[in-house]
Design a protein around this nucleic acid. Structure first.
Lengths: 228, 228
DNA sequence: GGGATTCTATGATAAATATCAGTTTTTTTC
DNA sequence: GAAAAAAACTGATATTTATCATAGAATCCC
């Protein structure tokens, strides 16, 4: 069994507020798991009876729209927590999580987390701060979705991906997204996303080989994302 | 000075978790205020050094998009809290709040709330639950903005307004929104909102006299909002 | 390693939505 | 209560985006 103490997730998430004793207890009840690319961590409507710690890999968290298209709400990556919101609201998940590549995760049962939330106010406060920040980010997304064009949103998403993910040896953004995934992040038709990507490539803003994308002109993309 | 104990806001918000003693302390440091229609409670970028309790009236909370259009994120009404998120994240507000009609509000200084958050875990947990629920709602909004047509979003907004606000003697929804406000809720041009409203009126789904709107066929609106 | 499948790409067209211009109506203000 | 300002409305047109159809490229899978 791996120690939680040195875990990357502990360093980056609210779990850093747990005391040594609490951490030891968590260490003993957590379970580790490998999730293969394409596999589902949980589905919309599932009861999520705990919190996932992402030790490695990336997953997309999405929600099915009433008209049958999937909307990617966020990408969860190494060091992140997943499922804490459903745990707090108590009900089943409103979102689906699916692995984009092979993942290494731990699962902490609900009761253990709830116990710590009730007893360790620093932990609760840190969680509160995280949620408040997420809400602020959500406001941004809502404004962008409502007011910006598809071209602007794609430019923004490319910048966002460039910031969030590491680069491989040649500088390509290290995340496995199909064109459909990208379209589902910005909320457009796959064909539209493809067309705009090709256009940005032609203009020298980006380059790509298949799914491997590299940003060549961040300033240019920023100009598109901001200027109307 | 009004007692906080019987206040509507206390009944409907996380403040219900405060103990009698905490409430008495809050009672003594809060300030009451009248805000006239059109006045701003706080602007994007302002330091909001406390929490607003809405005793009466309605305000719109919006955010300016980079292309210069205002997006209404939510409507805040009688019984709601306002400003707690900025308080928790610590920084300045990312949103602007403006009164839609005359309002009666109380203001509780930041330090008092923070003190209670640190000492009363029930209060913190309740706040945590509220934020988690708001995040879930935000997910819904993001999906709708990204995937639904303007017609669908307007239908949805009308249903939403019908649920959220009381009705006057004749059954009209009791909220003062211009056509531009409505357009800024659904994220479209004012002219588009006007056209679709007229269309819905012609189809007998709604009726309106000026800003006073009445829903005549909820089922019909639901069908539009859901079916693609 | 070759067939099946999924993914990417492109053109043609249709549909949705924004913009611009101008008019009428309502609301505010003095 | 009249003038000014703001809001609501309508038509014409341009732009954006989705849809449909089809073909080539990459990937998966025995």
């Amino acid at each position: 069994m791996n120690k939680c103490e040195q875990c990357i997730v502990r360093q980056l998430s609210s779990l850093r507020e747990l005391t040594r004793d609490e951490l030891i207890r968590i260490s003993h009840c957590k379970t580790s798991k490998i999730v293969k690319r394409g596999e589902v961590l949980f589905n919309e409507g599932d009861q999520v009876n705990g919190v996932f710690c992402i030790k490695d890999g990336v997953c997309k968290v999405s929600k099915m729209s009433e008209n049958g298209r999937d909307q990617v709400i966020k990408l969860i990556t190494k060091g992140d927590l997943l499922g804490e919101r459903s745990l707090i609201t108590g009900g089943s998940s409103n979102l689906t999580a699916r692995a984009l590549n092979d993942m290494e995760i731990c699962f902490i049962p609900k009761d253990e987390i709830v116990r710590d939330l009730k007893q360790n106010n620093n932990f609760t406060m840190s969680m509160l701060k995280d949620l408040a920040t997420s809400l602020r980010d959500a406001d941004e997304v809502i404004v962008d979705m409502a007011q910006k064009t598809v071209k602007q949103r794609l430019a923004e998403t490319l910048i966002h991906l460039d910031n969030k993910f590491p680069k491989d040896d040649e500088g390509y953004i290290d995340v496995y997204l199909t064109r459909e995934d990208i379209a589902n992040i910005i909320g457009t038709a796959t064909e539209s996303a493809i067309r705009i990507l090709s256009d940005y490539k032609k203009k020298g803003l980006i380059n790509f080989k298949g799914k491997r994308i590299i940003i060549q002109d961040v300033k240019g993309l920023e100009r598109i994302a901001q200027k109307y």
